[in-house]
């Protein structure tokens, strides 16, 4: 579904050359939920923007269903960390969700249907007429997720979407993402710096090194598909996995100090 091959991104500016991503290769299968986790500042956002066609990589390539990504492809939707700055404050919730669909040239009736359906899926059916700034942070991020769902993407890219919401909201939103993934069978690439979140959400966790980034380890999460905040998080296997990932991340950070 999604192939990242030898991805490299170097920022050059004002005499400084920063190698954010050195050499990344991984694949995401159709219908898979993959979490990318790495130490802070390891170029996760850069990586995701390259995958989403928002940034041009310096080297390597990203393939979506075998086709090279050279700009934001129509089959991909992005959910940003800064929900407050990603929704347009001058549009009501319904218009925000419907705007990308208008751009796709869908009929009015079909648009209305998709908007209602997407907002219903995230539990905000009655917020259509509200403005984003009238909603709480968690609800705003739900709207952003609804906008992505309504776009009917084959791949959903999520860039630390829950980093700015409180812990309880975050737990709800994690369950929402798992639920939507199971219901709709979309492929999700989820970037986070939170190890627990990565293990709880993902079917597979890709651990990244510190910047300049390479893939440090790929880990299959062999927890049951049916997960819930209460039981999964106290599952001994969950503890093993998170400890393992934690050690990997710590080692990755030390790697920076050593080199």
């Amino acid at each position: 579904m999604l192939d990242v091959r030898g991805l490299k991104k170097v920022y050059e500016g004002s005499g400084r050359r920063v190698e954010a991503v050195r050499d990344l290769t991984f694949a995401v299968g159709a219908g898979e939920l993959v979490c990318l986790v790495g130490p802070s500042g390891c170029g996760k956002t850069t990586l995701l923007k390259c995958v989403g066609g928002l940034l041009a990589p310096t080297g390597g390539e990203v393939l979506l269903e075998g086709r090279k990504v050279s700009g934001p492809p129509p089959g991909m939707a992005f959910v940003f960390q800064e929900y407050g700055r990603s929704l347009f404050p001058w549009m009501r919730v319904g218009e925000n969700v419907g705007l990308p669909l208008r751009q796709k040239g869908l009929s009015r009736a079909r648009r209305g249907e998709l908007v209602r359906d997407a907002l219903g899926s995230v539990g905000l059916a009655d917020a259509v007429r509200a403005y984003p700034w009238q909603l709480s942070g968690g609800m705003q991020q739900r709207v952003a997720i609804a906008r992505a769902l309504a776009y009917e993407p084959r791949v959903l890219l999520m860039d630390e979407p829950f980093a700015a919401v409180d812990a309880q909201t975050r737990a709800d939103l994690e369950d929402l993402v798992r639920g939507l993934w199971r219901e709709r069978g979309i492929t999700i690439l989820f970037v986070t710096h939170d190890i627990d979140e990565a293990v709880y959400l993902g079917e597979r966790v890709i651990v990244l090194s510190a910047s300049p980034t390479v893939v440090r380890e790929q880990l299959k999460v062999d927890l049951p598909v049916e997960r819930d905040q209460l039981h999964t998080r106290v599952d001994p296997r969950f503890a093993e996995l998170r400890t393992h990932v934690y050690e990997q991340i710590q080692a990755a950070k030390k790697g920076v100090v050593a080199s």
Partner: peptide
């Protein structure tokens, strides 16, 4: 214009006249 909003518009294919009308002028 907020860079995150600009990127949002780009990622959802909102470009050209639609971008001007829905993002730039409104913002």
């Amino acid at each position: 214009v907020d860079p995150v909003m600009a990127e949002t518009a780009r990622s959802y294919g909102i470009t050209g006249a639609a971008r001007l009308r829905n993002l730039v002028l409104r913002s």
